[in-house]
Write a protein that binds this DNA or RNA. Structure first.
Length: 570
RNA sequence: CGGGGCAUGGCGCAGCCUGGUUAGCGCGCUUGCUUCGGGAGCAAGAGGUCGGGGGUUCAAAUCCCCCUGCCCCGACCA
């Protein structure tokens, strides 16, 4: 590729609407352009990166035994109605009608479409297992698209679905995909972590998310360096604390204190004296509405409720915070001073409350708190549940070692679905024993466009992007410093051709521009290796610069190809 | 959905509060000359329905109303 002929519109300034590095850099370096909120044009450089990402995915999926298909993006409503998701997924779907007034949606995911295909064609256990995947556009009408490619309304995804005759075989494939995904992200040169995750809207039995570690990630995860436990904080379990020995003996007399206008945990702590009453000594009480019924949720003052875990505890019914009016109505107590004592609604307490002794809680009346409250003695806990968000430093639920907390970008998610869709859609087969059974399913997704953004988020500096060579738009750029000098041009062209012949992805910056201008572009775009052909060309010497480390080597022209090979292949 | 902000040439912005005659700046773009190892200099140019509609006024980018688009924030006080 010749830079002078390439469509690579770079710019000095970031667009005003870009917030995070990947968004700014992908726009500035000419990989993408915004068309509308959550919709992007992908320019040639972007396409090159996406094709490389897709190639790695295809190779590994095929190697793992999966087969590629292409299903329509336009989904007939009937299938979604059949699975019961037409209304559930509802607002996230772009829906429309054809000229005959039939309902359709642009596919946000394809369980229904694939299940429909397989149920029609597969009737015997002999045809199982089957793992089919596709790489294509997906549409989700996000409440709030943001961060460029990270949360777009139209994006490219690889989605795979597997069908099995038994639960064991589905589980075997699940781990097969786990290994496959690990290889895929390793090959892409990304730092990632596979974590146990909540199954979310897709449903199913258990799942893992593949998170690219980056500070701008929307997801949080914790992991244990010692035993390898790793989980999304939406799922991470707390180690259940022991009930302190002889706790009753430590109980002190209840004491009511005047705390005018002091509501927040932090304020209470400050007011009563931080040293004696840190947030860990204060009880936080919240009221949630679970399927219309109010429940009180107690957590230690320094902890946050993780709503996804809360939903799990209440088996995924509708769970939401109570409004101020509801709080007053159901508890008869003023907000800000809620007390577990004498509460008319059941109290569920987080594990973090178990070791608490002689703590502070609201008094149930305006401007008062109570000291030396103890669960069991002063109020009844209906059940101790694991609903607080796990934080870095907390003990690992498996081995007790302190957990590490990081932020990450979810680029892949694998689910063991079970028979949720096959039962709803009647996807059955006849087993060896002659009986008709629902197929056991799994599904496995990778956000292809998101991987591109995540890779940038993890690999950039003040000068621009630093692509891992495996997914870089070009592996090498040849930069003749001055296209008016014959010996420079000749040398550069020669190296360019040799690299092409050797099979490298190479671009030559043949533009009549000043050297500094070209260097800036090369750095911005993030091409891993730059070959600078300058003054020493006439002595047969050129310079190779490594984008990531900034290292520079002077190399004789005839050794360039070998040196590049050595650098890229390690 | 609720709250806030923005919309002026391809990009980034000023002007608007306190209406007034050619709407400005930087970058980019075109042409020429010079320059050529970290986003060059000089000179000459091109390019704008000031998001759209309506209103107030002798006069609107500027004031008022409506619409659209885009961006940011939004449980944890109970």
């Amino acid at each position: 590729m010749r830079f002078s002929r390439a469509f690579i519109p770079t710019m000095k300034e970031s667009p005003a609407d870009a917030e995070i590095p990947s968004h700014k850099l992908l726009v500035r370096a000419g990989f993408i352009r915004k068309k509308a909120s959550g919709l992007y044009d992908i320019l040639p450089l972007g396409v090159r990166v996406l094709l490389k990402i897709e190639r790695i995915i295809r190779e590994e999926m095929n190697r793992a035994g999966a087969q590629e298909v292409i299903l329509p993006i336009m989904h007939p409503a009937e299938l979604w109605v059949e699975s019961g998701r037409w209304d559930v997924y509802g607002k996230e779907m772009i829906k429309f009608k054809d000229r005959h007034e039939r309902d359709y949606a642009l596919g946000p995911t394809a369980e229904e479409m694939i299940t429909d295909l397989v149920r029609k064609e597969v009737k015997s256990y002999k045809d199982l297992p089957l793992n089919l995947y596709q790489i294509g556009r997906k549409f989700r009408d996000e409440i709030r698209p943001r961060f460029g490619l990270m949360r777009a309304r139209e994006f490219i995804m690889k989605d795979a679905y597997s069908f099995h005759a038994s639960d064991e075989d589905a589980e075997r494939e699940y781990w097969n995909m786990y290994e496959t995904y690990s290889r895929i992200f390793e090959r892409m040169g990304l730092v990632f972590k596979a974590v146990e995750a909540d199954t979310g809207e897709i449903g199913g039995k258990f799942s893992h998310e593949f998170m690219v570690i980056a500070d701008t990630g929307e997801g949080k995860l914790v992991y244990c360096e010692k035993c390898g436990y790793a989980a999304s904080t939406e799922k991470a379990e707390q180690r259940k604390p022991e009930i302190p020995e002889n706790r009753e003996e430590k109980f002190k007399e209840i004491e009511k204190v005047h705390t005018p206008g002091v509501k927040r945990i932090e304020e209470v702590s400050e007011f009563l004296g931080r040293d004696e009453f840190p947030p860990e000594k204060i009880l936080k009480l919240l009221v949630y509405i679970v399927d219309g019924e109010p429940v009180a949720i107690a957590v230690r003052g320094d902890r946050e409720v993780e709503e996804t875990k809360l939903k799990q505890v209440f088996r995924r019914k509708e769970v939401r915070l109570a409004t101020d009016e509801e709080i007053e109505k159901f508890t008869g107590q003023p907000k800000g001073f809620l007390s577990p004592i004498g509460l008319r609604i059941p109290v569920y307490a987080d594990y973090s409350v178990i070791p608490m002794v002689n703590f502070v809680a609201g008094a149930g009346e305006e401007d008062y708190h109570i000291k030396n409250v103890n669960w069991g003695r002063d109020f009844k806990v209906k059940e101790f549940v694991d609903i607080a968000e796990v934080k870095g430093g907390d003990p690992c639920p498996k081995c007790g070692a302190p957990l590490t907390e990081k932020r990450g970008i979810e680029v892949g998610h694998i689910f063991k679905l079970g028979t949720k869709y096959s039962e709803a859609m009647n996807a059955t087969f006849v087993d060896e024993d002659g009986k008709e059974k629902p197929m056991v399913m799994g599904c496995y997704g990778i956000g292809v466009t998101r991987v591109m953004a995540a890779a940038v988020e993890q690999n950039y500096d003040e000068n621009g992007i630093i692509w891992p060579v495996e997914i870089a738009p070009f592996e090498v750029i040849v930069i003749p410093v001055n296209v008016k000098k014959e010996e420079i041009v000749e040398t550069a062209e020669r190296i360019y051709k040799e690299l092409l012949i050797a099979g490298f992805d190479v671009i030559i910056d043949d533009r009549n521009a000043r050297p500094g201008f070209k260097f800036k572009d090369a750095d911005l775009i993030g091409i891993p290796y730059q070959i600078v052909v300058g003054k020493k060309a006439k002595e047969g010497i050129v310079e190779i610069k490594v984008r990531k480390s900034g290292e520079r080597f002077e190399v004789p022209v005839e050794k360039v190809v070998n040196k590049v090979k050595e650098l890229i292949e390690g």
